[in-house]
Design a protein around this nucleic acid. Structure first.
Length: 155
DNA sequence: GCCAACGTTGGC
DNA sequence: GCCAACGTTGGC
């Protein structure tokens, strides 16, 4: 059975509309530079998994839609590119440190489901997103949480 | 723009 | 291997 995830992105950098506008509506999920988030992508995200798309650093922050994992993990090429803001001088092609998956656009919700609303919803207490001080940019979502969020966001 | 939270780095 | 300094995230 497919698993579920949530990924964060600053919409000014990369929004769900950017993803929907890509060729074939799919893109590399590059630039993740946190080990815990990387491990989820590298080891656990599987083809066909569902992904909640969250807009951070915006007013208000919240979940705006969903995507699907269409390619499992492989090295993030931006770690080798000294011109990239994601360059990592300690990474080599022989021993890559950072990984990414490919995501395809699936759905844009009729409205943004805000972080505040999710904090009020029963059943999301264990979602890292709603925890104070949380900074994880890729996190697992349980089937029950997924269902509750979709129901609330679709109205 | 501020700043709390927290992950990472590097000196020892 | 500890931990202070530092940098980043991300809500507000």
């Amino acid at each position: 059975m497919a698993a579920y995830w949530l990924v964060k992105s600053e919409p000014e950098v990369y929004s769900i509309d950017h993803l929907a506008a890509e060729a074939e509506q799919r893109a590399h999920w590059e630039g993740v530079r946190n080990y815990q988030a990387r491990n989820f992508m590298r080891d656990e995200m599987k083809l066909g998994d569902g992904v909640l798309f969250y807009h951070s650093n915006t007013k208000p922050p919240g979940v705006v839609g969903t995507a699907t994992v269409v390619r499992e993990s492989y090295p993030d090429h931006t770690q080798f590119d000294s011109n990239s803001r994601y360059y990592d001088p300690k990474a080599t092609p022989e021993s890559p440190r950072w990984f990414m998956v490919d995501l395809a656009f699936a759905e844009k919700f009729p409205r943004l489901l805000s972080l505040d609303e999710m904090r009020e919803m029963p059943g999301l207490e264990n979602l890292p997103l709603v925890r104070r001080g949380n900074r994880l940019s890729v996190m697992p979502v349980s089937p029950a949480e997924w269902k509750a969020i979709l129901r609330a966001a679709r109205g």
